[in-house]
């Protein structure tokens, strides 16, 4: 409730302009989605004949049925597996790393922190060929398990940056009290630091959950067959098979966006709060 309104004519005009622009941006943000959903219910030729802005003749789910029969649920399941495994690994490993970097004093601390953070600007493409080689050599190529390793590794720099900043804010006294009570470093970590970092950890899960769910370059390079591929490849593969049947592809797009939209509706409030927890402390 931060209305600072001087009810004079000038501010009324300003608000009117702001609302018009806001509505315009609403339209820009929404139009591609409307296009996608509306046309995904149309037949292949219906779309060509009737134009993009007309409502579909009937609400026919044929395209969606075709997509689901085309193995969509398998892709969905694999995406869920890869994303959850990677998230679990990411949370554990970056929490482990953030703890000493934010709360212990040792020689190489500054150097190691700087080194990890510097990796944020390294593009994954620089590593793509060697990672491809290693994956082939280790026998992980074309399996689901090729993916969590690189996903987690590339998520660490950003995650440590956010989480270490967050952990710095936890009062030292709590930790000292635990130490006096005979609580070792490891127990302190699991029983005090982790529970107190929940807000920071949920920020990481939001950021990285979206990234893992949508990741494309590694899946495309490290897998070949459907049995190892996640949702972004479903879109790619359906496009290859049905390149002329646009409504079917729009149905794939709509279906693959749906889980994220549902998650967003559930977690909406946490999202902005979570972003706040991590983003702008430093």
């Amino acid at each position: 409730m931060r209305m600072i309104v001087k009810e004079d004519r000038k501010s009324v005009v300003a608000w009117a302009i702001a609302f018009v622009l806001a509505a315009l941006w609403l339209l820009i943000a929404l139009l591609p989605f409307l296009y996608m959903v509306m046309n995904s219910f149309k037949g292949q030729f219906e779309m060509l004949v009737s134009g993009v802005f007309s409502l579909p003749e009937a609400l026919n789910f044929d395209n969606y049925v075709a997509v689901i029969n085309g193995g969509f649920l398998g892709y969905l399941l694999r995406s869920i597996i890869v994303t959850s495994v990677s998230l679990a690994g990411m949370v554990l490993i970056s929490a482990f790393a953030s703890y000493p970097l934010s709360r212990m004093k040792f020689k190489l601390r500054g150097f190691l922190y700087g080194l990890i953070i510097a990796c944020m600007s390294i593009p994954m493409h620089v590593t793509l060929i060697p990672v491809f080689k290693m994956t082939t050599a280790s026998g992980l190529y074309d399996t689901l398990w090729a993916l969590p390793g690189p996903y987690v590794a590339f998520a660490i720099p950003m995650s440590v940056f956010i989480l270490a900043n967050f952990m710095k804010g936890i009062p030292v006294e709590i930790e000292q009290a635990a130490e006096i009570d005979g609580c070792g470093k490891y127990r302190t970590f699991f029983e005090i630091i982790i529970p107190l970092s929940k807000a920071g950890i949920s920020t990481l899960c939001i950021y990285n959950g979206i990234t893992f769910w949508n990741e494309f370059a590694f899946v495309k390079t490290l897998t070949q067959s459907v049995k190892a591929q996640t949702l972004p490849m479903a879109i790619n593969n359906f496009k290859g098979e049905h390149s002329v049947n646009i409504p079917v592809i729009l149905a794939v797009l709509a279906l693959s966006a749906l889980p994220m939209i549902i998650m967003f509706c559930i977690l909406q409030d946490k999202l902005v709060k979570g972003m706040t927890a991590g983003s702008v402390k430093g």
């Binding site: 490993i93 790393a97 212990m104 020689k107 190691l112 990672v131 590794a153 440590v160």
Partner: peptide
């Protein structure tokens, strides 16, 4: 402290060496 720090940092550093530094 140094020993604990090493253990806590090891997984992240190992993973980053394998998937970022070495490549």
């Amino acid at each position: 402290t140094a020993v604990a720090a090493t253990w806590f940092l090891a997984p992240a550093l190992i993973l980053m060496v394998i998937y970022i530094a070495y490549p």
